[in-house]
């Protein structure tokens, strides 16, 4: 089921396991919240002081990945952390799609619709690339 050096359930089948939420200690959730709040505050400060375009740079700041990588490296080793970074590459490609969709639609469509379509674009792009690369590697 799991690959060498991988975490439980690390096979190729996509699954959603609610029980996994109990795995990380509470401290990990606090760290993630703190990183999210910190990056958002940083983007807010830059936006207020240097303009929204400069602040926008930090909407794709890799702090969450940084937090995740350091936590995973501590619990599961550097190899597993590197695997998470590999997965994040697809998410980062999707982030470009998200930003482009918002740029093209936010002045034309209602905000909620623009953000929903942008988020769906991120998910479809990221997961489709993930699936394509996984299939090529088999």
């Amino acid at each position: 089921m799991s690959t060498d050096g991988g975490r439980p359930g690390d096979d190729q089948k996509v699954r959603l396991r609610v029980g996994e939420l109990r795995r990380p200690p509470p401290r990990d959730w606090v760290v993630r919240f703190a990183f999210g709040a910190g990056v958002s505050a940083l983007a807010g400060v830059v936006s207020v002081s240097a303009g929204p375009r400069a602040g926008g740079l930090f909407l794709a700041f890799p702090a969450i990945l940084l937090a995740s990588v350091t936590l995973i490296a501590k619990e599961d080793g550097v190899r597993q952390a590197a695997q998470d970074v590999g997965g994040a590459t697809f998410g980062a490609l999707g982030l470009i799609g998200f930003a482009v969709v918002v740029t093209l639609t936010v002045t034309v469509w209602p905000l909620w619709l623009s953000l929903v379509i942008a988020t769906l674009s991120w998910a479809v792009l990221s997961l489709a690339l993930y699936a394509a690369v996984t299939r090529l590697r088999r």
Binding site: R7, G9, K13, E20, R23, G87, L115
Partner: peptide, 26 residues
């Protein structure tokens, strides 16, 4: 955290979470 395989979960480390929050407030 709920997703497996964990390589797929890595995708969510680059989710537009900060962007969504910030753009809504903006």
């Amino acid at each position: 955290e709920m997703l497996t395989p964990k390589r797929l979960a890595g995708v969510f480390c680059a989710a537009p979470s900060v962007a969504l929050a910030s753009l809504i407030v903006t």
